[in-house]
Amino acid sequence: MSKPPLFFIIVLAVIAILATRQFMKQRREVAVNDASPVRSIQVEVKTRREFPASSRRSRQREVIAGEDMRYEAWFHPLNGAGDFKLILSEKDYRQLDKGKRGTLEVQGSRFIRFLPAGNALR
């Protein structure tokens, strides 16, 4: 039997290193979010966006029926701080409208819920 080419082994090693690095990054983010307190911020929904989870932002293409979607929203804090983006579930995404104001609850970079202004806490 012949030995696999060195290039092939290097490519596999790079893929394994990058995958491990991404996994560790996600684990750290989850740990930081779990350790963070829940904060309430008065915000305005600046914009929201949905796109196929597998697409790159630079490409525009049609959505295929049944394809997994990714949902995100940009929020503008009413205290004058900088805008920030959060990833949402489809249910939470559908409840937001551009320009709507209310209380956003977050834990680290994790979306908890959005309570529109005038709604009582449940």
Rank of each mutant, 00 (worst) to 15 (best):
residue 16 A to Q: 08
residue 110 R to P: 01
residue 20 T to R: 09
residue 42 Q to G: 03
residue 20 T to C: 10
residue 121 L to S: 09
residue 4 P to Q: 05
residue 39 R to F: 00
residue 91 K to C: 10
residue 108 G to L: 01
residue 85 K to Q: 13
residue 99 G to A: 10
residue 117 A to R: 10
residue 85 K to Y: 05
residue 29 E to Q: 11
residue 50 E to K: 04
residue 120 A to Q: 12
residue 104 L to Q: 01
residue 46 K to H: 12
residue 111 F to T: 00
residue 76 H to E: 15
residue 37 P to R: 03
residue 87 I to G: 11
residue 111 F to H: 02
residue 106 V to S: 00
residue 83 D to N: 14
residue 42 Q to D: 11
residue 64 I to R: 11
residue 50 E to I: 01
residue 35 A to P: 04
residue 7 F to S: 15
residue 21 R to K: 11
residue 114 F to M: 07
residue 40 S to E: 11
residue 46 K to F: 12
residue 83 D to F: 05
residue 86 L to G: 02
residue 5 P to T: 10
residue 32 V to T: 10
residue 84 F to G: 03
residue 56 R to A: 14
residue 61 R to E: 15
residue 20 T to N: 12
residue 105 E to T: 04
residue 122 R to Q: 13
residue 43 V to S: 02
residue 44 E to N: 09
residue 7 F to M: 13
residue 50 E to A: 08
residue 47 T to Y: 02
residue 43 V to D: 00
residue 100 K to R: 13
residue 90 E to N: 13
residue 80 G to D: 10
residue 26 Q to I: 05
residue 41 I to V: 15
residue 34 D to I: 03
residue 2 S to Y: 04
residue 63 V to A: 11
residue 77 P to Q: 06
residue 4 P to R: 07
residue 20 T to Y: 08
residue 115 L to S: 05
residue 87 I to W: 08
residue 83 D to A: 08
